[in-house]
């Protein structure tokens, strides 16, 4: 269900993070994207109040991966009633860390000339997959052996109509790297790695059976 560009990184469609009725007329919809190695919060601010809005600023609560605004929220002109503006806020990953539940939850405070408002949103963990996340094959095999069985989680991905090569190249656009592919009993087994911004490596096996739209992923 991706709306991402075919070879680019996956970015979900914008959703409403802050409804106007909860924020004295300020509506914020947004999404997260990773563009050329930069994590961005992309937002549409809509003024559904009767007076102009100015003096915007944004702050995050500490979060699992230290996401923090890399600079101020750039709203350079007042936002009039019924007006919308688009803002892209670059994020750094060196902010204060606190484990959140769920892990990718982000608590945000936005202020304007009217008040301070709070909302939560969840970012796709793939925002944190760095460009140099392709593990050496030898290291992958050794690491795979070292990981205790209890650390493995398995998921079904339903209704995916790509063959394993197409899936592999699409995933690579989001910095999920295929290190090896083997076919056993008609099943493609893809061994993949990714590295999070905090240096943690994730190893995965993706199983794709020809004609079966359900994949199995083990991480």
């Amino acid at each position: 269900g991706s709306v991402g560009m075919p070879m680019g990184a996956y970015s979900p469609p914008k959703s409403i993070w802050l409804p106007a009725m909860k924020a004295k007329g300020l509506e914020i919809s947004g999404t997260f994207a990773r563009r050329a190695g930069v994590i961005q919060m992309e937002m549409t601010l809509t003024n559904k109040a009767m007076s102009i809005m100015t003096d915007f600023a944004i702050q995050f609560n500490r979060n699992s991966f230290g996401l923090a605004p890399a600079g101020p929220l750039q709203v350079l002109t007042p936002v009039g009633p019924n007006q919308s503006i688009e803002v892209a806020l670059p994020l750094s990953t060196v902010g204060p860390v606190m484990k959140m539940e769920p892990l990718t939850n982000l608590q945000v405070a936005v202020k304007n000339n009217i008040d301070v408002f709070y909302f939560s949103s969840q970012y796709p963990i793939s925002m944190l997959f760095v460009e140099d996340g392709k593990m050496e094959r030898q290291v992958f095999l050794a690491t795979w052996k070292d990981i205790p069985n209890d650390n493995e989680a398995q998921f079904q991905i339903k209704d995916c109509h790509l063959n394993s090569d197409a899936a592999s190249s699409k995933l690579q656009g989001s910095n999920v790297f295929t290190i090896a592919k083997r076919t056993v009993e008609g099943q493609d087994m893809l061994y993949q790695s990714m590295k999070l911004t905090n240096g943690i490596w994730v190893l995965a096996e993706l199983r794709v059976q020809a004609g079966n739209p359900n994949y199995t992923v083990s991480t």
Partner: peptide
């Protein structure tokens, strides 16, 4: 030789995961 060894190791891994 190392590359051959790694190729084989991945084949063994895939095999063992399919038929544990």
């Amino acid at each position: 030789e190392l590359e051959d060894g790694l190729d084989e190791a991945f084949s063994r891994l895939a095999e063992s995961r399919t038929n544990p």
